[in-house]
Simulated assay, not measured.
Amino acid sequence: MPSPSRTDAGGALPPAAVALMLLLCGVWGLNLVAMKVTSAGIPPVLQAGLRSVVAAGLVPLLCRPLGLTFGEWRQPRLLLPGIAAGLLFAVEFIALYVGIGLTTASRGVVFLYGAPFWVALGTHWLVPGDRLTRAKALGLCVAFGGLVLAFAEGLRAPGGPDMLAGDLLCLIGGALWAATTVLVKASPLREASPAFVLQVQLVVSAPPLLLASALLGEPWAIDPQPLVLATFLYQAAGIAGASYLTWFWLVSRHSASRLAAFSVLTPIFGVAAGALLLGEPLGGGFLASVALVALGLWLVNRPAG
C-alpha cells in the first residue's frame, strides 16, 4: 500500500477510490449479517470489545508485509488526538449497540447513517478544500432519501416505549462516527500512517468497551459454535483489521465528505446480503432506493465547478 498523500484533496474521487469504497461498503454490509450471527453466541458490546482486542493483535501482522509502521506512538502531538479518536470509537459503538436494543433495526440504521451529513458539515468548517457545495448537499439528501425508502416498511413498524431514546443513541453513534473521521482529517493525525490511526483506536477502545459490557450486565460467556467464531473472526480480521485500515488510507488521501457519502450503500448491501444469506424479504421499493442512492452519490462525486 503506497504512502498516503499529505494533502487535503477535496476534489472528485478517482475511479480507483470509488471502486475501493464500493468494495468496502459491500464488506461492511456483509458485516451487518455477521453481527447478527455472532450475537447469537457473544453479547454485542462484549463482541465489540473483543473485536478491538483481537484486531489490535492482528493489525501489526497485516501491516508488516505492507511496510506500514507504528513509530508515531512516540510523538505526543499524534498520540493525544489518537487517544481521543479511540475514545470516540468506543463510545460510538456503546451508543449504537445500546440504541439498537431500544429501537427498531430500521430506525437505528437510518439514524446511524445520517453520519455523512455530520462529516460534510465538519469538514466544511474544519478541513480546507473539502467544502459543502450545493451539488454535494443535494446528492447527500437524494442518497439519504434512497436509504429511507429502502427501510420504509421497517420505519412504519411500531416500537417500544424506549424507542425515542434508542433513536437518539443511534443518532449520537452516527455523529461520533463522523466526529472520528473529521478528527482524523482535521488534526495532526492526517500526517500519521493509516496503520497508526487504526491501531491507536483499537488499543484505546478495547478497555472502555469491555468495561461497558460489564456495566450493562452482559454475560461474559461465549458459545464456541463454529459459525459464531467464524463470523467473529470475519469482524476482527476483515472489518476491524483490513477494511478499517483501507478506510483510513482512503481518508488520508481523499475528500472525507465524498468518501463518507458512500457509506449509505452499506445498509443497502446489508439488506441484499440478508436476502441472499438469511432469506430475509426485500422491500417493494428496494430497486428504486438503489437508484436514488446511486444518483445521490453521482451528484456528491461530481467535480466542483
Score class of each variant (00 low, 15 high):
residue 101 G to Y: 13
residue 114 G to N: 09
residue 95 A to L: 10
residue 102 L to Q: 06
residue 90 A to Q: 09
residue 96 L to R: 06
residue 80 L to G: 09
residue 112 L to N: 04
residue 92 E to F: 00
residue 119 V to L: 02
residue 88 L to N: 02
residue 90 A to T: 04
residue 115 A to N: 11
residue 117 F to A: 00
residue 110 V to K: 04
residue 99 G to E: 06
residue 81 P to Y: 10
residue 114 G to M: 12
residue 113 Y to D: 03
residue 95 A to V: 08
residue 82 G to S: 14
residue 109 V to Q: 02
residue 80 L to A: 15
residue 118 W to K: 00
residue 113 Y to F: 15
residue 92 E to Q: 09
residue 111 F to Y: 13
residue 110 V to C: 02
residue 91 V to G: 10
residue 99 G to F: 05
residue 114 G to Q: 14
residue 102 L to N: 04
residue 99 G to D: 10
residue 98 V to K: 15
residue 86 G to R: 12
residue 111 F to M: 08
residue 114 G to A: 11
residue 93 F to Q: 12
residue 119 V to C: 02
residue 118 W to Q: 00
residue 83 I to Q: 12
residue 104 T to I: 08
residue 101 G to V: 12
residue 118 W to C: 00
residue 105 A to K: 12
residue 82 G to I: 04
residue 101 G to Q: 15
residue 94 I to F: 13
residue 86 G to T: 11
residue 84 A to Y: 13
residue 106 S to W: 01
residue 90 A to C: 02
residue 105 A to C: 06
residue 89 F to N: 07
residue 112 L to D: 00
residue 109 V to E: 01
residue 100 I to H: 05
residue 102 L to H: 09
residue 95 A to Y: 14
residue 114 G to T: 13
residue 84 A to G: 15
residue 108 G to C: 07
residue 119 V to Q: 05
residue 95 A to R: 15
residue 96 L to Y: 10
residue 103 T to E: 10
residue 111 F to Q: 02
residue 110 V to Q: 02
residue 109 V to A: 02
residue 85 A to W: 11
residue 116 P to A: 00
residue 105 A to H: 07
residue 87 L to G: 05
residue 109 V to F: 03
residue 115 A to P: 09
residue 88 L to M: 05
residue 104 T to Y: 13
residue 89 F to H: 10
residue 87 L to T: 07
residue 99 G to P: 08
residue 117 F to P: 01
residue 84 A to N: 09
residue 112 L to S: 02
residue 90 A to D: 04
residue 93 F to Y: 15
residue 86 G to C: 09
residue 91 V to N: 13
residue 104 T to E: 06
residue 90 A to K: 05
residue 95 A to G: 05
residue 116 P to M: 07
residue 86 G to Y: 14
residue 83 I to R: 13
residue 103 T to L: 10
residue 113 Y to V: 06
residue 99 G to L: 04
residue 87 L to W: 02
residue 94 I to G: 12
residue 105 A to I: 14
residue 117 F to D: 00
residue 109 V to P: 05
residue 107 R to L: 04
residue 104 T to C: 07
residue 98 V to A: 09
residue 101 G to M: 09
residue 88 L to S: 01
residue 97 Y to D: 08
residue 84 A to P: 12
residue 94 I to Y: 12
residue 96 L to N: 08
residue 87 L to Q: 04
residue 89 F to V: 04
residue 118 W to M: 00
residue 84 A to D: 07
residue 92 E to P: 03
